[in-house]
């Protein structure tokens, strides 16, 4: 009965013209998206970098050749070489080990910002766009006010109010980045709120919550995912900037921005102290940008 052109292989099951279950239909769609994604070489490079970052963070204690907090003043400011691949810093700590452990902090910041700001923005934007009227006016004026603040300055103000620390940096970044997501979600919602399939859902007696969660959010989320991925680089840079200013992660945490700040005074003679974490930030930001571009090609129907 199951006349499968690919002879029952996994790919054949995934691309089947007549899926037999909800799961098969969903997985098939994911698989088609994945096929489109793999055709984009740069996006795959970005994905490799991001996966590399995740692996680095997960395996940091086993990958790092030294303890990232172990000071050895006898071995300070050693240039990159066989014993210390990326050199040592002013306290004799191994920079490679610190960068490897620092990836955990970077990922921690990225993960926490990702689960807060876009979700808050999505909720505010879709509610605002769907209901319109005074709800829209009120929510969008709040968004306008939040957008009008310079991002880094507002983050600085929050950090100084909450006290320096990595959690304060995350809260500050999340609070300053949700308005952009709210705007995107609202714009997407406005384009679909009068479409026939939303009217049809209303005619079935669906509640507003059901329509927003089940019908509006799935259509807004792909452009939001793309935007979040592209913003990741900015988030990492803002976190590093706060660390550099001494307002984010505090010493002796191996946060990359704070490491650059520590290497600032040696930048002319011992260039590697500031450069190595800088290269790490650069590579990870680039990875997220490439991944975001690739995701946009797959997810954004308008660019197809």
């Amino acid at each position: 009965m199951s006349a499968n052109p690919n002879g029952g292989s996994l790919a054949g099951w995934l691309t089947a013209d007549t899926p037999r279950s909800r799961a098969q239909a969903r997985l098939g769609r994911l698989y088609r998206g994945w096929q489109g994604f793999t055709r984009n070489g740069l996006a795959m490079l970005g994905l490799a970098i991001v996966l590399g970052l995740v692996l680095m963070a997960a395996l940091a204690p086993w990958l790092a050749p030294y303890d990232p907090y172990q000071q050895d003043l006898g071995r300070r400011l050693i240039p990159p070489g066989a014993a210390h691949w990326l050199g040592t810093d002013a306290f004799g700590r191994d920079i490679l080990s610190r960068i490897l452990h620092g990836s955990r902090l970077t990922l921690y910041i990225v993960a926490l910002v990702t689960v807060t700001a876009p979700i808050a923005g999505l909720a505010i934007g879709t509610v605002s766009g769907y209901f319109g009227g005074w709800v829209d006016a009120a929510l969008m004026r709040i968004t306008d006010i939040a957008l009008a603040f310079p991002k880094l300055i507002l983050a600085l103000a929050f950090v100084s109010a909450l006290g320096p620390g990595i959690e304060s940096a995350i809260i500050a970044i999340a609070i300053t980045s949700w308005p952009a997501y709210a705007r995107i979600a609202r714009a997407e919602t406005l384009t679909i709120r009068h479409s026939d399939f939303i009217q049809a859902a209303r005619l079935q007696g669906a509640s507003s919550a059901r329509i927003i969660l089940g019908h509006v959010v799935p259509l807004c989320s792909s452009s939001l995912i793309v935007r979040v991925t592209l913003d990741m680089a900015g988030i990492i840079l803002t976190a590093a900037g706060l660390g550099f200013l001494g307002l984010g992660a505090q010493p002796p945490l191996p946060e990359w921005g704070a490491m650059i700040a520590a290497g600032r005074q040696y930048v002319l003679d011992q260039w590697w102290v500031a450069t190595m974490p800088g290269i790490a930030i650069f590579i990870v930001s680039l990875g997220f940008n490439l991944l975001g571009d690739g995701l946009r090609d797959v997810l954004d129907p308008k660019s197809r």
Binding site: D196, F197, Q199, L219
Partner: peptide
């Protein structure tokens, strides 16, 4: 073409 949600089976 407009009355069915494009992301729903």
């Amino acid at each position: 073409y407009g009355s069915l949600h494009p992301r729903h089976t």
